[in-house]
Design a protein around this nucleic acid. Structure first.
Lengths: 160, 160
DNA sequence: ATGAAAAGAATGTATATGCATATACCGGCG
DNA sequence: CGCCGGTATATGCATATACATTCTTTTCAT
């Protein structure tokens, strides 16, 4: 059953430890902690801060539009909105097209977001300090490129 | 309540859209999809592939040791192991110190891991192709640096 | 020895994530 | 008018993530 001998197996595992997916997830966990810690006084998580920010920037986006801008599954976003609506920070209402839900900041949501901005800035600066401004900016650029190309359809001989 | 006028608020939100935490999470979602798709024929997810790989490399690590190597909370790892144990890919047993759980690959787990390696390689190559080898390697390096420094205690004037 | 502190791991609760599927709604066609 | 295909969102299920807490076991000071 084992087609590789012990040495070959170990060698292959060492290569797999350099997995780009793992690198990104480990960094996401660590950095997520950093932002969550910094934002703790405001009572929201980094993920929720990003959601509020995206809504504030987009105005009154639909669920689908917001999900696409965040490289996130629509159903995931659908659920992630619920705690924020429950907390009174976001409002969802149907427009003319009753299938759509228009998402908007409440006054309370805007206030919470505004109060969170200095805390976010602290965390952001801590990351920039750890890498240096230049490397941090380049990293964000590479990650954005990766997010775009990874979610794009594969040019190769598979996929629908 | 709103201390910033509309223009200042929008400006601050545009800055917050450049959040490093968000960049990393977006990339993690997109890249996670890519690896999950590639690994689908083997029946395991990218997260589980990483877990099996880490166990294979470490030999018979404890939960805590494995969690640290993966920049992951122990309790998270504790739960993530359960599906793999249930699937018969991992085994957990107590040693002399009955508090510890030694984690090890089963024969089935090793076979699954070995079968997954070529699929993983496809995904890894796709990422390297998207960025170019050089940029991909540099990205992994920066992410590793970030994971280390973000999970390290803050040198500044706060924290316990 | 023994009892308290510390260490290792699991569990309760809550959010985050995505696939398969269900539900609700729009627009067009007969 | 009423059905039908397509669109927008929500739900069921499963895993991933982490904090606070609990449980067991070890260690160690007295």
């Amino acid at each position: 059953m084992a087609q590789l001998d012990a040495d070959q197996f170990k060698e292959a595992l060492r290569a797999a430890a350099g997995c780009s997916g793992l690198s990104v997830r480990k960094a996401a966990r660590a950095v997520g902690q950093l932002y969550d810690d910094a934002l703790a006084p405001s009572g929201i998580k980094g993920t929720q801060f990003s959601l509020l920010t995206a809504v504030g920037l987009a105005g009154e986006p639909t669920v689908s539009a917001l999900a696409e801008s965040l490289v996130m599954d629509r159903t995931t976003l659908s659920r992630n909105l619920q705690p924020l609506v429950r907390a009174g920070l976001l409002r969802m209402q149907t427009g003319k097209d009753k299938r759509q839900r228009r998402i908007a900041l409440t006054a309370e949501g805007r206030a919470k977001l505004e109060a969170s901005l200095p805390l976010w800035r602290q965390a952001q600066n801590r990351v920039s300090d750890a890498l240096g401004e230049g490397r941090a900016a380049r990293l964000r650029g590479d990650l954005a490129w990766l997010a775009r190309s990874a979610s794009a359809p594969v040019p190769g001989p598979n996929k629908t």
